[in-house]
Design a protein around this nucleic acid. Sequence first.
DNA 1: CAGTGGTCTAGACCACTCG
DNA 2: GAGTGGTCTAGACCACTGT
Lengths: 241, 241
Amino acid sequence: MAKAHPPTPPRAHYQKIKDHLVRDMARGRYPPGALMPSEAELVVQFGVSRMTVNRALRELNDSGMVNRVQGVGTFAAPMNRLASTLTIRNLHEEIEARGHQHHAVVHLKRAETVTAALSPRMGLPVGAPVFHTLIVHFDNGVALQCEDRYVNPARAPGYLEVDFSQITPTQYLLQVAPLWQAQYAIEAGHATRKEARLLGISVAQACLIVQRRTVSRNTPITCVRLVHPGALYTLQGQFKP
Amino acid sequence: MAKAHPPTPPRAHYQKIKDHLVRDMARGRYPPGALMPSEAELVVQFGVSRMTVNRALRELNDSGMVNRVQGVGTFAAPMNRLASTLTIRNLHEEIEARGHQHHAVVHLKRAETVTAALSPRMGLPVGAPVFHTLIVHFDNGVALQCEDRYVNPARAPGYLEVDFSQITPTQYLLQVAPLWQAQYAIEAGHATRKEARLLGISVAQACLIVQRRTVSRNTPITCVRLVHPGALYTLQGQFKP
DNA sequence: CAGTGGTCTAGACCACTCG
DNA sequence: GAGTGGTCTAGACCACTGT
């Protein structure tokens, strides 16, 4: 008994076990923090091998539905947080996906030296060379984003030669230094006077401001401030259990 | 040969394979879209079983680093988007985690009927009963969030009896209807006059506005509008490859 | 058809935690 | 010590895709 019957389409064993456990959690059988069945118990209950049970529980653990502790057991996760995959897409791609036209105006593209204020954000010493660009992105002629970016020259030597009306800095940097590690902060605020002028908005207008620092292989790549006029730009996402 | 030596601490075989492939992708050996080694090839290259290779590739696939197509092969993913897990935490928990004091003031808690404007958002017919709360949350006495929430009575019959100075609506709803599916939108905007008054801010102040609709088992649970005075509230996250 | 990935088994050894 | 999870193997059958 316990043959390897369901190959793919009906439903994999490990998936059935996941579904079963999730259903029981939803029914309140395993309230937050409750001890869930051990692998050995599920093996006999479902008549499958431990590898299969292990995969089900491991995937539930990876998705945050349960917490596993070696030597102790598997516990229903508190479910007191909503975690969602937020995809920060390339702006160009995003605009084209809407069937709109994207174009960018480069207001500044030059080498500078790191100031005391920038040093901690970029992780470079004061006085070190740094590339600086200021670009406004348009969606069908409407200013959608003001991108104020500093780039580590050591990681993207050719940055200043790139034609940013053809390729976005994000696209270029992903090519020369892929596999980022990024930290970001999203908040509401107001554009600076200069940013407001470039975006054609009032400084009183609420803006969605994203600040992002990215690091690759332990060296800083870039830090950027993205200012979007409110009501024009929305981050959307979805959470699924 | 090929014993099961590295149990956990040194580094698991499947993890070594993942690291190796990720490093090669970062070095440009597998540009976006490139065909990556098959499971059989990696089996001989690393001297491990196919299950182990399969786990490495499956996890890379799950995290979006590669794309696998049955019958065809494994391909390096485009890497043209940054995906990040954004965790929307319970506000109470978040404030306490900062070592601050949280309290809430309930300005409205009653049953109403669904209006034409609300109907599509809640997924309930016009005229149906609906619970409505308006609560302001404070962090050390500073108004941090105005929470305007509608709740489906069918899914949370006891909602109006809850003491929301002791437990947040989010906490309560997670208890009675766990395992949400949620859609959210984050944007910058301005508070309404009423919201501004409750938060003690000016309507000119930029605010971070989160709108969230949640569904559980195909029935709507709640929809909420959260208004945070800008500069007081930041969503943060991190992306790792 | 050969080659790919998707799933599964019945064992195994290990590290960890608890009483 | 017994019980837990973490990892691994050497096979296996299947579905899918291409030529």
